[in-house]
Each structure stands twice: as C-alpha cells, then as structure tokens.
Amino acid sequence: MLETNRLILRPMDERDVNAIFAMRSDVDVMRFIREPQNRDESANWVKLVSSRWEQEQIGFCAMLEKLSQEFIGWCGIWRLPETDELEIGYAVAKQFWGKGFATEAALKFLDYAFEKLENEKIVAVARPENAASRRVMEKLGMRYDYTGEFYGFELVHYSIDRDNWRLRNMKNFR
C-alpha cells in the first residue's frame, strides 16, 4: 500500500470490479487504451494485473481518494512485453479528470520502481494523440524517445532514468 497527499494506492481485488467495470466500459476513458470491456473481461483484467505482485512485485493499484475513499482510477507498473522494460500506467475515471491525480499516483510509483525495485529506467507508452497522458509523462520528468509498436498499437515511448529522476526530485525540493 502506498500513500500520497490525496491518495491511497492499494492492490486491487474483487471489491474493485464494479468500479473498474464502470471505467473499462466507458468509451471516453478507454478511447486511447483499448476497446471497452464487459463485466467478465473487466474482472479478468483485475485478476491479470494483480497476478504478478508476489513473484515480481509489479501490478496495478486502485487509486482511492484518501478522505472520501472514492475510487479515482488505477495506476501501477507492468513489464512492457516487447522490450522487457518496466512501464508505468494509469487511468482516471472521467469525473476526476484534470485534477492531477494521475501524476500524483504515477510519481509515487516512480519512487517505488527506482527505490524498492532498484530499477535503472522506467518507461511509459501512449497513443500519440493522447495529449493528457503525454502531459503526465512530461510532468513526471519523462522524455519522448521514439514511436514504436507495443500491444499491437503504434505508441509513443517515453522514459526516465535514475539520474534524471534524482534531478527532478532535487528541482522540486528547491
């Protein structure tokens, strides 16, 4: 379980299926991710992104607003199958868009990946036209690398290495 100023990030389980289904069936939320899913597919997705905590310490967390305990979205790290790099991923339910929640959660996962997993480089991918996601990557301190095929889509690839992550944290401190 991870905590930020406004959020609790905890591993997902069955109790999140309703909220996840609401998001994964929403065409606006899914526009730049994949085809919307039904309830069974959403439940399977929860199992999938929860299946690697034990062996690899990676997976997706439910993003909950600390005070209201409202479900905001998901955020976590996964391994990009095409390059075997650790990637960061996030999505936010429509009513919470534009409040900086994705950046807040993703920053915490960057710390987790660099500090706890002692990884040297973290990447993120998105559809080229997904300006909101790219803006989050830039706020994280990530830089655009190239456009390539991932998960069967043409996606932009961003990354940040350990040195730049340290630099970013120092700047913020000042």
Partner: peptide, 13 residues
C-alpha cells in the same frame, strides 16, 4: 506453468 506466467503473457491494457 504458473498462474503468474499464464497471465504475464498477456497485455495490461
């Protein structure tokens, strides 16, 4: 094959 291996072959999208 373990559960984790089975699921890890899949996309997180």
């Amino acid at each position: 094959i373990s559960k984790a291996e089975f699921f890890s072959s899949k996309s997180c999208l």
